[in-house]
């Protein structure tokens, strides 16, 4: 038996909106730690890892570890029916083939339940090694989204370079080229508006903008994003989910032959 009650139901709605473009079907894993998911996109270029810790739920009951295969588009369709202020409860029976999403309005005058069919998904679980990153850039998530969107109107790939001068996002395309440099600025009024660059070694990597743009669908989840880079390693683009966990996107780099 599984019963997870999330007072801030809008978080789950936002999580689904952030990953449904990248991943079609995925197994949600439920354990005493929390509600999590790990899935690759169909071309195995990107990986998403989601964690919603059990402590972040108002009520968290998970009698034994469960893996529930869901079509994320269908799940998003159901969650769209929840109001932004609704409390969402996820319920499932051990060994059952359905999951129920219950939505309660804040004043308790409207209660809905939506039952969704589960599916069997053969998914590969990957071990993500702990890595020391050469550089970690923390910046406003809206700024990062803006940069990815702007650059994708010029080119298909972005070169992200971190030096002591700052972080540079560059692209080239048929019509020309573009460079955007963001410098560390910790003297802003609000900490979420700061760009903080933590660099051990200069790093420069090339990535497909199409994926970066897809990751920025998670912007509503967090005011800030952190981008962790190491030469020859996938980049990690992390959006923290207030008091609950995170959505992390890993993207393999492109290399020159």
């Amino acid at each position: 038996m599984l019963e997870l009650r999330l007072v801030q139901g809008s978080l789950l709605k936002k999580v689904l909106e952030s990953i449904k473009e990248l991943v079609t079907d995925a197994n949600f894993d439920c354990s005493s730690t929390g509600f999590s998911l790990q899935a690759m996109d169909s071309s195995h270029v990107a990986l998403v890892a989601l964690l919603l810790r059990s402590e972040g739920f108002e009520h968290y009951r998970c009698d034994r570890n469960m893996s529930m295969g869901m079509n994320l588009n269908n799940m998003a369709k159901m969650l769209k029916c929840a109001g932004n202020d609704d409390i969402i409860t996820i319920k499932a029976d051990d060994g059952g083939d359905t999951v129920t999403f219950m939505f309660e309005s804040p004043t308790q005058d409207k209660i809905s339940d939506f039952e969704m069919k589960l599916m069997d998904i053969d998914s590969e679980h990957l071990g993500i090694p702990e890595a020391e990153y050469h550089a970690i850039v923390k910046m406003p998530s809206s700024e990062f989204a803006r940069i990815c969107r702007d650059l994708s109107s010029i080119g298909d790939t972005v070169v992200i370079s971190v030096t002591k001068e700052g972080v540079k996002f560059s692209t080239k395309g048929d019509i020309g080229s573009a460079n955007i440099v963001c410098r560390q600025n910790t003297s802003v009024d609000k900490p979420e508006e700061a760009t903080v660059i933590d660099m051990n070694e200069p790093v420069s990597l090339t990535f497909a903008l199409r994926y970066m743009n897809s990751f920025t669908k998670a912007t509503p989840l967090s005011n800030t994003v952190s981008i962790s880079l190491s030469n020859e390693l996938p980049v990690v683009v992390e959006y923290k989910i207030a008091e609950m966990g995170y959505v992390r996107f890993y993207l393999a780099p492109k290399i020159e032959e």
């Binding site: 690759m40 071309s43 195995h44 270029v45 990107a46 990986l47 590969e124 679980h125 990957l126 071990g127 993500i128 090694p129 790939t157 090339t206 497909a208 390693l233 996938p234 890993y250 993207l251 393999a252 780099p253 492109k254 290399i255 020159e256 032959e257």
Partner: peptide
């Protein structure tokens, strides 16, 4: 000329 690497080249299957 540029090759897209796969995530599975970095992270082992468990």
């Amino acid at each position: 000329r540029s090759t897209q690497l796969s995530i599975t080249e970095f992270f082992p299957s468990t």
